[in-house]
Design a binder for these strands. Structure first.
Lengths: 151, 151
DNA sequence: CTTTCTGCAAACGATTTGCAGCAGC
DNA sequence: GCTGCTGCAAATCGTTTGCAGAAAG
């Protein structure tokens, strides 16, 4: 994730333009923040990393970036959203979620597991006429920090 | 889910008592509604099925039922929560989520897929000291109704 | 009787939106 | 200059909470 940063910005710019949007400093800052981490960030974390940006602008821009297919918004269990780069920019991955503190970690699943999920998706498509666009696999539990804090 | 309804109420009663709570008519109505469907219900759907219950009572009781381990609350992508019976009451299952209308369908995954997920959970526990309590596998896409409405 | 529930209305917190000024092209 | 972006403050919306009366044990 070092020199691919340039490419990341290029892609973001391109996708925004396709939507008739500009790639402004605020939007670049958000993409920078998301490109610089290995886990989804909450609004608070994004604002910390985006010196001086109004919260409303962050929300607005994240929504626009999501429409452009640059950013993905996810809701875990607590009621605050988290944001990450779109999957085609980061590679497919899954999440480990601490339901005590809400923190999220990225992980990869072995190929045979992914194959199994795709097979399931096909069977659902066949049975229910449901078009599966993507899937989500979360491991939910207690992170090391919260586990030790609990005692 | 026919004569097990009696057992369901018995279990709910028991778990509430364990928490020093009463199994009131309102709570029974909520459990009835959740026991009578094969998919998670939103607050609106629950209120429709619970004649005359105040919204605040529904929220409060669902939260108490969740604490007692009778109900499980889930958040998908839209920002409204949905509720279902706890997994040990319904059996383990997964969700198919329409990201257009937010509707949710229950499905089962084949055992070998479940085994794969458990193996992944163990490897995460070993690597990150994360205690995996359960997992979530969602297939996200467009339901048949929304797919046909879209054209 | 005492304690827990309930409905109502007010409070909350995350997110959204209206608006007037500033910035990109 | 025109159009879109920004910050600010006000508005929304799902959800939570305080309170006084009703119900369960």
């Amino acid at each position: 994730m070092k020199d691919s940063l340039i490419e990341l910005h290029h892609t973001a710019d391109e996708r925004l333009r396709r939507d008739g949007q500009r790639y402004t400093a605020n939007r670049r800052a958000l993409v920078d923040a998301l490109g610089d981490t290995d886990r989804p960030l909450s609004m608070g974390e994004l604002l910390e990393r985006s010196e001086g940006m109004a919260q409303s602008s962050a929300y607005r821009n994240l929504s626009i970036l999501e429409d452009a297919g640059v950013v993905h918004r996810l809701v875990t269990s607590d009621d605050t959203a988290r944001y990450e780069l779109a999957e085609d920019l980061t590679g497919h991955h899954h999440h480990v979620i601490c339901d005590t503190c809400g923190s999220v970690l990225d992980i990869d699943a072995p190929p045979e597991l992914e194959r199994g999920v795709h097979a399931l998706a096909e069977s659902v498509a066949a049975t229910h006429g449901f078009v599966v666009a993507h899937h989500r696999l979360d491991l939910v539990g207690t992170c090391a920090a919260c586990a030790s804090a609990r005692r």
